[in-house]
Design a protein around this nucleic acid. Structure first.
Lengths: 241, 241
DNA sequence: CGGGGGTTTGAGTGAGCTCAACTATCGTGG
DNA sequence: CCACGATAGTTGAGCTCACTCAAACCCCCG
């Protein structure tokens, strides 16, 4: 379970044992709780076991930008432990089961074991890569592209996280949250989603998304999976419509 | 020189020596050269000695989003060495002097020395934090705020990188590049800059920026320096107009 | 059956875009 | 020393994508 973290790089038995032995506290969280709060000290990392979690920042006037969405198996908020205080807020998007791990313990494990260090580094780098792609989306793509793109991304990430199929998955966000992730208003998200439905690309009802035409959704969203750095990315990207 | 990298965390003599001993190749680059190219293997990190460097991504239709701008002392493009291939392009913004360091050597140094590992981690985390703030800007702030914000950011980062003063510094970007960094067109950047000049906030001519009213620029840009994780941030943020 | 969060719809508005031309600046070579 | 070309900045006019505000609707849950 804990070792799911390290999909992107090889870990031998010793490294896995070391990870499993990390001190941690498993907690169930509801949507109103905070995992981290901007400006506070962050001493714990959070490994997401099930459910969804998101990070967001606020402007001075209260506008919210969602900076990432995390699916099961993701290690959230590790970096901030290193910097002393958190830059952003982290909250569950849905009810979520998380394992809280002291950052110090992770750092110590990394110092002990080069494989763990590399795995953690790789994980951080992959998350940074996703962040850069989000910036590209928000900065350069139009509403329809942004939404298609995000839908594709979460499809693949959830599939890797253990969902049966990428084409049919749990949709964790409200339209307002989708807007805050893409830099759009919820009204405009709503209209754009309607257009996508009308064009037969997808079926989205509360908490559940079905992708009806993967190829078109991918093309319209200008989506290529490389930035996710998933081992299965190539295959998934070729998945039939 | 090499050790400037580690401003954010403590390094003892041993760690510094270890860093200085890293294999590297110093090169002078002009604006047309590539430090990394999207999709290629990246085996080298790049420590920027002088000049400016930027990273950018392209959409399928060729729109460009600048993901970061780097000033002297920054370690650029380290993460991608870990992931195998680069997600983005890295080019000099101006003529630049860089030290190319093999990623493996950095990883090895980190494995040897916990202080180096922590310094590198911290550096990556700080860069990620900046990226998140850019996402916030592009997603939620208007043109004027985005530009003011970026001007403030580069002022502080350059000051820390050794410029005499934050209020008066080398401006490395064209208006088009500023547009690509903020998700605006160069035309709109131009008009917004004119408004800022007219309001007496700054003086910007080719390659040189003078901030005339730091406080207003900061307030209008909704800028707070915390996300930069600079030791001097608090002081700088309070600098007089 | 009465909230309340989420979604949908309508109408009007505006920030920022597009396209296109023009100007300024500067380095280069004849 | 000037003509030239290239790069960067400026201006104008018209347009559109996405926003704002506001009201309805839906549906789940207590």
């Amino acid at each position: 379970m804990v070792s799911k973290l390290a999909l992107r790089s090889h870990l031998d038995q010793h490294a896995c044992d070391r990870l499993m032995a990390l001190p941690h506290r498993i907690t169930e969280l509801d949507r109103t709780s905070f995992i981290a709060r901007e400006g506070e000290k962050a001493q714990q990392s959070c490994l997401l076991l099930s459910g969804f979690v998101y990070r967001y920042k606020l402007t001075g006037t209260g506008a919210r930008q969602i900076c990432s969405v995390h699916v099961g198996g993701d290690l959230v908020d590790f970096q901030n432990g290193l910097l002393g205080h958190s830059d952003y807020n982290v909250q569950p998007l849905t009810a979520a089961l998380v394992a809280l791990i002291p950052c110090d313990a992770l750092v110590a494990a990394a110092a002990d074991c080069a494989q763990i260090a590399r795995a953690l580094w790789t994980d951080i780098a992959a998350n940074t890569s996703i962040l850069a792609e989000w910036l590209l989306s928000v900065g350069q793509r139009n509403a329809r592209q942004r939404i298609c793109h995000l839908l594709c991304e979460l499809a693949l990430r959830q599939e890797l996280a253990g969902a049966r199929t990428a084409a049919d998955y749990t949709w964790p966000m409200t339209q307002e949250q989708l807007g805050d992730a893409t830099g759009l208003t919820s009204v405009h998200v709503n209209r754009t989603l309607q257009a996508l439905r009308a064009d037969g690309l997808l079926h989205l009802s509360s908490r559940h998304l079905t992708i009806l035409n993967w190829r078109r959704l991918r093309d319209e969203g200008d989506f290529t999976a490389a930035y996710l750095h998933l081992p299965a990315a190539d295959r998934a990207n070729e998945a039939a419509a």
